[in-house]
């Protein structure tokens, strides 16, 4: 085990162990950082760009989720620029598909919504792009509404890394990228899906939901998956 060292985050000394990411260190030290794509225990991808931080001596902004700690690092998680950029990023997410909370089953139980409150989004400056996306209700227990999907790929990762079923991936690219089940089949037709529902639990929006959830009544339990990951990581 390598010896730990201290780094400073927002002028506060924090202990860090080699190999840890800045996000992990922030979590341990209760320093809040906004994240959308990251989920504890799944491999980090650095896609949502909300956890970008400033590191002294580094010219570019780096995502805390994929940046490893290094001795003498001086990190700043809150600056006017970071706040401005984070706010714009969350607005871009809301502008991309349909995130009308008023008629979403995930209303009041939605990480995306909570994040937008957190970042003080009172309106979206960018025009809504309103693509028409599919709603796949073919599964006996769950629904996938692509209109609510933010492409965080948590479902892809939990399916391959934790459940090991690898039924999900991303197809296409850019604005046309979509989450797919196997050969872009109806979820209900999937021969590889174990219906374990982990993807539904970790989905941060109303994109993946149980099909019996009424508007605003949805309860998701991502902690259950987090706990499961922890148990699996622990050596017997």
């Amino acid at each position: 085990m390598n010896a730990s060292f201290t780094i400073t985050i927002d002028n506060q000394s924090v202990e860090a162990t080699p190999g840890e990411s800045l996000l992990e260190v922030c979590r341990k030290a209760n320093i809040p950082l906004p994240v959308m794509c990251d989920f504890k225990g799944l491999s980090p991808v650095g896609a949502c760009r909300l956890c970008l931080v400033e590191i002294e001596g580094v010219p570019k902004l780096l995502p805390a989720c994929t940046t490893l700690v290094a001795p003498n690092q001086a990190v700043h998680t809150q600056s006017d620029k970071l706040r401005k950029y984070r706010r714009m990023i969350i607005e871009l997410i809301f502008s991309e598909r349909n995130h009308i909370c008023a008629i979403c089953v995930a209303n009041n139980n939605c990480e995306l919504q909570k994040m937008a409150y957190e970042l003080g989004m009172d309106h979206v400056r960018f025009p809504y792009l309103t693509p028409v996306c599919e709603v796949d209700a073919s599964h006996e227990k769950y629904v996938m509404d692509h209109n609510r999907c933010i492409l965080c790929t948590r479902c892809v990762r939990v399916c391959s890394e934790i459940e090991g079923a690898m039924t999900r991936d991303v197809m296409g690219r850019g604005f046309d990228a979509r989450i797919i089940t196997e050969f872009k089949q109806p979820w209900g037709d999937s021969t590889g899906c174990t219906s374990c529902g982990k993807c539904v639990q970790v989905c941060p929006t109303g994109a993946l939901t149980p099909n019996d959830a009424a508007q605003g009544r949805l309860k998701k339990n991502p902690e259950l998956v987090a706990l499961l990951i922890e148990k699996r990581e622990a050596k017997p």
């Binding site: 991808v45 650095g46 896609a47 949502c48 760009r49 990023i89 871009l92 997410i93 502008s95 991309e96 960018f126 025009p127 792009l129 933010i150 492409l151 991303v170 296409g172 690219r173 850019g174 604005f175 046309d176 990228a177």
Partner: peptide
């Protein structure tokens, strides 16, 4: 750039689309 964006990160995927529009 919009057409060639891989779609992984938000600023590029949505940002190039918005700037293009």
């Amino acid at each position: 750039c919009m057409d060639e964006s891989c779609g992984k990160c938000v600023p590029c995927r949505v940002g190039t689309k918005q700037m293009h529009d």
